[in-house]
């Protein structure tokens, strides 16, 4: 397999070369287990993600794409190599700072939603703010604003369990954006949804990218969804096999407009 180390040559990226990458991955490897049972989940990955980009990490299940995301999101520690967040080496960050960074810079959207089903929608959205120690009134206001963005303000008091899948994922998006993150990691965000509701979620995420400049990193095996992103990073057997830049900006815009129509 050819190691892929080429630099980004996409036109839209060259304009950003003087901008610091939000996430910069260098020679990243991750091995699970020891010696005889060792399994190399990721091998020597290099990539940079710039502010405001939309990046898809594509690969089959077991390819290592989720591991890559976990490492970039600082949920896991690499065996070797480094992850830099806004120029800072994450391995140099300890406990409190690391938690802080994850809490304030990153938002997460998961395939299985991970909602506290017995809590209200509002409580679920408030959780990141609670963890970062925002006080009562402010956090309620901010959570309601986030719910307004995903169009679920009227469901704030409902139990999370009583929502449909699409609504749950919208709550997750509200939870992901409530701290105004720089980066949103979405792990198969449409995986549990039918195509109609999936589309709504996609539109919502790209809308956030367009309007708020949030960097979007989507982990998926869905080629159509990946094609909507500005860049596709293909992972196979733990290696970065191919990186493509999409010219589909127009396509994406069209999709958002379509989505808007559907919403109305």
């Amino acid at each position: 397999m050819v190691k892929n180390k080429r630099s980004i040559s996409d036109g839209s990226k060259t304009a950003k070369t003087d901008v610091k990458p939000v996430i910069e991955v260098k020679n990243l490897s991750k091995t699970y287990g020891k010696k005889s049972t060792a399994f190399k989940a990721l091998n020597d990955i290099n990539l940079s993600i710039y502010p405001g980009e939309t990046v898809a990490i594509i690969g089959k299940s077991g390819s290592g794409k989720s591991t890559l995301m976990h490492l970039m999101a600082l949920l896991d520690k690499p065996t070797s190599g480094s992850v830099r967040i806004l120029g800072t080496d994450a391995s140099k960050l300890k406990g409190k700072k690391l938690n802080h960074l994850r809490n304030e810079y990153f938002g997460f959207v998961f395939q299985q939603f991970f909602m506290n089903s017995n809590d209200s929608v509002l409580e679920n959205v408030i959780l990141p703010l609670k963890i970062s120690g925002v006080r009562g009134r402010t956090r309620k206001k901010r959570a309601l604003e986030a719910l307004d963005i995903v169009d679920l303000e009227n469901k704030a008091k409902n139990k999370a369990n009583n929502l449909s899948g699409g609504q749950k994922q919208r709550v997750c998006i509200a939870r992901a954006i409530v701290n105004n993150p720089k980066v949103i990691f979405a792990d198969e965000p449409t995986g549990n949804l039918d195509s109609g509701t999936g589309k709504k979620i996609i539109d919502l995420l790209f809308g956030l990218n367009k309007e708020k400049g949030v960097t979007l990193i989507i982990v998926t095996h869905d080629e159509d969804l990946a094609a909507l992103c500005g860049r596709q990073i293909r992972i196979s057997d733990g290696e970065l096999v191919k990186e493509t830049a999409s010219t589909a900006r127009t396509l994406r815009n069209a999709s958002i407009k379509e989505g808007d129509k559907e919403d109305k």
Binding site: K96, R102, N103, E104, F114, L127, P128, I131
Partner: peptide, 16 residues
Amino acid sequence: TKEIGLMKALGMSRLK
């Protein structure tokens, strides 16, 4: 377990 995982992912420290 999942809730704990989520809270950790969202930046809650071990101590908390």
